[in-house]
């Protein structure tokens, strides 16, 4: 009997590697992330300070993570605000409006979009978007072009295929006879979309946006290349800001001691943010399966 069960045990073992990876990952990140408080004795409340002064060579260090957390949220939210209308619109187009030939162009195009690596987006932002903002919108305060807006626009492009493909699935999952029912009552196609398809797919679209936010919050290199990396609380779309991921990317190889520990704490904060998103997505999914 035990021999018969061998395949089951081997495949289970492979699946369990995923759990092992998560446990190890959580363990290492939490352990390294709390060193700042446990070993260096920095008060936990200090990370909520708006002041980031990690350099031990200057007087009085302060490990305020607020600029990074606020920057991450600010860049992420604006990216989603820019990207959502385009992505959901494109998903609606592909699911509801597009004739077959247009769908045959749009679908592979989305796959190409997904395939472009993030450093390439960062490089594009650096060589095209940043100079463009500097030259044409300098009068609006884009002194260098490196800015909150530049980061958000690059991210908006990167999360577009994510939001598009998940909302597309949500629209396609709305049964065809719901649309026919609406049309048979004499509504226009847009009325059917607006009053039947969109409400029925609302949870799916919300899930798509959360997936987009998740990706936006976690993207590192592309954002780091265009955002200016100034550890300040974001106040203007035209000014440089920074994010958790950017700062880790920039400082990790050089920072030592308590400074380094603070970077691990940033990693822990990122982990908690993604955990929150996973739980949010699960919660949205549960609502859908009950409805």
């Amino acid at each position: 009997m035990a021999r018969l069960d061998a395949p089951r045990r081997i495949t289970l073992g492979a699946a369990l590697v995923v759990i092992a990876a998560v446990v190890l990952l959580l363990g290492f990140i939490v352990w390294r992330g709390v060193q700042l408080f446990v070993v260096s004795g920095v008060p936990v409340t200090q990370i909520l300070s708006p002041t980031w002064q990690p350099d031990p060579l200057s007087e009085g260090t302060t490990y305020g993570l607020l600029p990074f957390i606020a920057g991450t949220l600010a860049v992420m939210v604006v990216a989603a605000v820019v990207s959502t209308p385009l992505s959901v619109g494109l998903a609606l187009f592909m699911a509801e409006v597009a004739p077959t030939w247009a769908r045959r162009i749009a679908q592979p195009a989305m796959e190409v979009f997904v395939g472009i690596p993030s450093v390439v987006y960062g490089w594009l932002g650096l060589t095209i978007l940043v100079p463009f903002l500097r030259v044409h919108f300098g009068w609006l305060g884009f002194a260098t072009g490196f800015s909150w807006l530049a980061g958000s626009l690059v991210l908006a492009l990167m999360i577009l295929p994510t939001i598009t493909s998940i909302s597309y699935d949500a629209f396609v999952a709305v049964p065809a006879d719901m649309r026919s029912a609406s049309l048979a009552l004499g509504t226009t196609r847009w009325q059917a979309i607006r009053h039947v398809v969109l409400p029925a797919a609302a949870t799916g679209v919300a899930t798509a946006i959360v997936f987009g936010l998740t990706r936006a919050a976690g993207e590192a290199l592309a954002v780091q290349m265009v955002i200016g990396n100034a550890p300040v609380i974001p106040t203007s779309l035209a000014r440089p800001v920074t994010t958790l991921t950017s700062q880790i990317t920039l400082d990790m190889s050089d920072a030592t001691g308590t400074w380094n520990e603070a970077l691990w704490t940033m990693g822990l904060v990122l982990l908690l943010i993604s955990l929150a998103f996973v739980l949010l997505i699960r919660w949205l999914g549960r609502g859908r399966s009950q409805a």
Binding site: P175, D177, M178, S180, A181, S182, L183, A184, L185, G186, T187, T188, V196, P199, A200, A291
Partner: peptide
């Protein structure tokens, strides 16, 4: 078509109420 369908209603093979 929209005008025609207002005057001519259709009841489908499978009941298809909206999720409302």
């Amino acid at each position: 078509p929209v005008e025609v369908r207002r005057k001519v209603g259709l009841v489908f093979q499978r009941p298809n109420p909206f999720p409302m």
